[in-house]
C-alpha cells in the first residue's frame, strides 16, 4: 500500500496539473487554430502544383505531418512511460495513456493518405513499401497498447504493463523499420517505387512546415484535454471506491 506521503504526492501533482492545464488549453487552442488556418491556406491556395506530381502534392501536406505525428506521439508515449516506470509519476502515466489514441488516429490518417497518394502516383492503393509497411506495424502496436489499457480496469495496475509494452515497442520500432527496409529491397528494386519523389522545393516547405507545427500543436492541446479527463476519471474512481468502502 502507499505510504501517507506517497498518497499526498500522488494527489498533489494531479491537482497542480489540473490548475496549470486549465489555464493552458484555451490559449493553446486558439494558437493551434490560427496556425492550422494559415497552414491550410498555404497548402490549398498559396502554393503551386508540383511539376512532377501535379496537384497530388497537396495530399503530402496532410500525409507527412500525420506520419511525423505518428512517430512523435509514440516518442512522447515512450518517454512518459519511462518516467512513469522509474519515478512512479502518476501524471506521466496519464500522459502515456492519453497520447495513445491520438497517435493511433494520426497513424491511421498517415496510412490512408499514403494510400490516396499512392493510387495516382504508383497506380495502386497499397504497396508493401518499406515505409507504409512499418507505419502499418506501428499502427498495430498502438492498437495493442490501447487494447492492453482497455482490458485492465484498475489504472494503477495498468501502469507497469502498459509502460513496459510502450518501451519494448520503442526499442522494436527501429528494428522493425530496418527489417522491413531490408525485406523491401530484397523483393522490389528500389527504383520502381520512388518514395522520396522530387526534392522538396521551397514552395512546398512553407505549407509543410506550417501544417506540421499546426498538427503538433493540435496534439498537445488534445493531449492536455484528454489528460484532464483521465485525471478526473481517476478521481471519480477513487471517490466512488471510498464511498463503497463506507
Amino acid at each position: 500500500m502507499l505510504t501517507a506521503s506517497q498518497r499526498l504526492q500522488a494527489f498533489a501533482n494531479p491537482t497542480r496539473f489540473m490548475a496549470l492545464s486549465g489555464r493552458l488549453v484555451a490559449p493553446l487552442g486558439v494558437l493551434t487554430a490560427v496556425v492550422m488556418a494559415a497552414g491550410l491556406y498555404f497548402a490549398l491556395f498559396a502554393s503551386p502544383p508540383d511539376y512532377q506530381q501535379g496537384e497530388t502534392v497537396r495530399i503530402m501536406y496532410i500525409h507527412v505531418p500525420s506520419a511525423w505525428l505518428s512517430l512523435f506521439v509514440y516518442s512522447v508515449m515512450a518517454v512518459s512511460s519511462g518516467v512513469a516506470l522509474v519515478f512512479r509519476h502518476p501524471i506521466a502515466d496519464v500522459c502515456a495513456k492519453a497520447a495513445a489514441p491520438i497517435g493511433a488516429a494520426f497513424t491511421f490518417l498517415a496510412l490512408v493518405t499514403g494510400s490516396l497518394w499512392g493510387e495516382p502516383m504508383w497506380g495502386t492503393w497499397w504497396v508493401w513499401d518499406a515505409r507504409l509497411t512499418s507505419v502499418l506495424i506501428l499502427f498495430f502496436i498502438y492498437l495493442g497498447y490501447m487494447a492492453l489499457r482497455a482490458t485492465i480496469d484498475d489504472p494503477h495496475a495498468a501502469t507497469r504493463p502498459a509502460a513496459v509494452l510502450a518501451l519494448v515497442g520503442f526499442v522494436n520500432v527501429p528494428i522493425i523499420h530496418y527489417s522491413v527496409n531490408w525485406w523491401n529491397t530484397l523483393h522490389q528494386p528500389a527504383s520502381v517505387f520512388r518514395m522520396d519523389g522530387p526534392t522538396v522545393a521551397s514552395s512546398m516547405l512553407v505549407p509543410l512546415m506550417t501544417l506540421a507545427i499546426g498538427f503538433t500543436l493540435f496534439f498537445f492541446v488534445m493531449l492536455l484535454v484528454r489528460m484532464r479527463a483521465e485525471v478526473l476519471r481517476r478521481r471519480v474512481r477513487a471517490m466512488s471506491l471510498r464511498r463503497a468502502e463506507g
Binding site: 506495424i137 498495430f140 502496436i141 492498437l143 495493442g144 487494447a147 492492453l148 509494452l165 519494448v168 515497442g169 522494436n172 528494428i175 522493425i176 530496418y178 527489417s179 522491413v180
Partner: peptide, 10 residues
C-alpha cells in the same frame, strides 16, 4: 498474441 505479433515481424 495481438501484442506480440508486431514484434515478430523482423
Amino acid at each position: 498474441s495481438l501484442l506480440v505479433v508486431p514484434f515478430y515481424v523482423p
